[in-house]
Amino acid sequence: METIRVERAKTLKEKPNPDTVKFGVSFTDHMFLMNYADGKGWYDPRIVPYGPIPLEPSAMVFHYAQEIFEGLKAYRRADGKVQLFRPRDNIRRLNTSAQRLCIPTLDEDLALEAICQLVRLDESWVPSKEGTSLYIRPFIIATDPTVGVHSSHTYLFAVILCPVGSYYPEGINPVKIFVETEDVRAVRGGTGFAKTGGNYAATIRAAERAGQKGFTQVLWLDGVERKYIEEVGTMNVLFKINGEVVTPPLSGSILAGITRDSCIQLLRSWGVPVTERKITAVELFAAGESGALEEAFGSGTAAVISPIGEMDWDGRRVIVSGGKIGPLSQRLYDTLTGIQWGKVPDPFGWVLPL
């Protein structure tokens, strides 16, 4: 494996207050960079001081959105040590996205070592306050200075780090969601299963409309028949109906969430039945109106578990779990965060201590 060279920052930044730090605003002292060129492959892996990346105005990423990214976290345990949660799964998913976007894949071992070395170098940025963590953002962008629709011949792989506060500083409050009936997020055969910026750009308009109506998140329907539930906001979604947890299948239009997979593994280990199947908005709201819908929640890296307390679809309104977080959602949140922060045992081998 190629050696990663390190250039340390001469001046270190002042770290943000862990009580007030906002997501995605403050970045650490260093970043990882590596270049790619056709015929040469990935080369020059390096850790350098965090700073601007020079690009030509004609760089293909600006014009044709050939880019992918990931998101994972490093956690400070009670004993002061730092650990990552399922980092290799994030790297595998990054490569899956790369294949869809015609981007050269990474050597998984080198990418993992890059992340680990970078976090170790900036380990003092990993906050210790309960609920906080260090967000890790790997990404790849097309850098060819060419205005033309084709795959780039050069790329840049980068990793940046960002300390983040507790997602729920005042406790987990269930969110109100609005079923989107006008816009669609993705279709099978498209890029919905890849983690690429265009998927997220396509959600902004609906999210803003929902916010104007007093809702926190959008519940997305499939892009073809416009009747099957797919995702909530930028998270996977799960429903507990008559004692069974139901979640939309990975059919090509939604992201294979690592937190989603963690939830499914935990639930099955507890003996809770889990079914991955299509579920229509009609079925979901009928279950909500009859009382069969016991809990609903989103799952993702940022929030881990985001309970849903209210749903609205064309004027039909359903209150879930009395508008409070349900016991199963709470147990999942407590267990997952317990594993991530090293408070409870990890029987699945998910954590990687540094």
Rank of each mutant, 00 (worst) to 15 (best):
G342N: 13
I103S: 01
R93M: 00
A9M: 06
V159C: 02
V126L: 00
V246L: 09
N17C: 09
E208F: 11
T337Y: 14
F27G: 00
R76L: 02
L106N: 01
Q265I: 05
C162E: 06
T337R: 14
I258T: 04
Y43D: 05
R226V: 04
A98K: 02
A37D: 09
T143M: 08
G198F: 11
E310A: 11
V179F: 01
D122E: 08
N236C: 08
V232P: 00
R317W: 02
D107C: 07
G309F: 13
I339Y: 09
P127H: 13
W125E: 08
K129M: 02
H63N: 05
A286H: 14
K240A: 08
F193P: 02
A296H: 11
A296K: 13
F139C: 01
L94P: 00
G342I: 08
V25T: 14
W42G: 08
V320P: 00
D144S: 13
P145L: 05
F193C: 07
I264C: 04
V21Y: 06
N90L: 02
L156D: 00
I339M: 12
D183N: 11
G189V: 03
K10D: 11
D144V: 04
Y75D: 03
Y36W: 09
G257P: 01
A302H: 10
G338M: 11
A194Y: 02
N173S: 09
A207Y: 13
L72C: 14
A303K: 14
D79M: 09
L328G: 09
S306H: 11
I103W: 04
G190R: 12
G233L: 08
G291S: 08
V274D: 02
R88A: 05
T337N: 14
L255I: 05
D183H: 15
V351C: 10
F27A: 05
T28W: 00
G192R: 04
G322V: 11
S124D: 12
F348I: 04
F285L: 06
G349C: 07
S133M: 06
R260Q: 05
L221P: 07
G288M: 10
A158K: 14
I140L: 00
L352M: 09
L328C: 08
L106F: 04
D334S: 14
S26L: 02
G39N: 11
G214F: 06
L336D: 04
N17S: 15
S166K: 14
N90I: 04
V274K: 05
F297S: 00
A9V: 08
I47V: 12
V21A: 03
S299H: 06
A114W: 06
G192Q: 07
L219V: 09
I258P: 05
V344D: 02
Y167P: 04
L94D: 06
C116V: 15
R76K: 15
T105E: 08
R137P: 00
I47D: 02
S253D: 15
S152M: 01
